[in-house]
Design a protein around this nucleic acid. Structure first.
Lengths: 141, 141
DNA sequence: TAATAGTCTAGTTAATTAGTAGGTTTTTAA
DNA sequence: TTAAAAACCTACTAATTAACTAGACTATTA
């Protein structure tokens, strides 16, 4: 399951991507429109800024804005920043690999092959879906 | 990510399914072979018993045994019992559905369609993979 | 220079995870 | 019939994470 942080982050970015104008968007506006705690959203957007997805401007007329084009931002990359691993087990994660301390040898582990299969089918979707895809509600399945 | 409980449970059941004889298997044997804390494994196997996957026998010569044939037990059903929802969001879970309290309407939620897609591709794998599939290490991908 | 709006520090509360300790009950075999 | 075996039950615990909250600080702009 995705944490609320990840969910809120994705919703906030989608909200920003939907806006035509390039003007900075207020945290408070997003918080209100998407029913997210403003203080919590502050933390999330700051993290997305520090990860290179967002830029910000302080003071009046300030806010957050997308640095890259929505088409160039995959959902997979956002989940990795907000949530961490996408795989179901650390030992089959591509970006957050961790060795199993209980497995005798990973090659013969009964679970790892299955979990690699699940990981790949999930990545096939998430790597090919961009923020731009989230903005149009008539997204093809 | 799957919890260790789920991972241990799947590994323990796989270990049991691998055995040819129908004789009960000791918790302590599984714990030792799979490097799982025995006390923790007790809890897990008891839960699998209460969920109808395992039977047990007390006393000497006792232990746990599979009630159904490994071919008839899907990995999806095991994960649901041990872990809970397979979906990435409660609002797209088939077996553990929960309404989003922040979404204005679920139909137009940008995330839900994507998460349904991920859910379905994961289920396609996990519903069609049985305990028996986990026992042969030459499982086809 | 005052209002605006992001940033930083430092918490809190509740839930979950991953166990541990130790005793009880049931069954089997000597 | 009794002792050992092995599951079962009750009740903790420690560590981590999730989901926030409060309040002060800093930069910008009208």
């Amino acid at each position: 399951m995705l944490s609320k942080k990840t969910k809120y982050g994705l919703k906030a970015l989608t909200y920003m991507a939907k806006k035509e104008s390039k003007k900075p968007v207020l945290i408070s506006e997003i918080a209100e429109e998407e029913n997210i705690s403003k203080k919590f959203l502050e933390i999330i957007l700051l993290q997305l800024k520090n990860s290179g997805f967002l830029g910000s401007k302080k003071g009046k007329g300030g806010g957050y804005y997308l640095i890259r084009e929505p088409e160039k931002i995959t959902v997979a990359s956002l989940i990795r920043v907000l949530e961490g691993p996408i795989a179901m087990l650390p030992c089959v994660s591509l970006n957050f690999y961790e060795k199993c301390d209980d497995c005798k040898n990973e090659e013969t582990c009964s679970l790892s092959k299955l979990m690699i299969e699940v990981r790949d089918s999930t990545l096939k979707i998430l790597e090919n879906k961009s923020l731009a895809d989230l903005t149009n509600s008539t997204m093809s399945l």
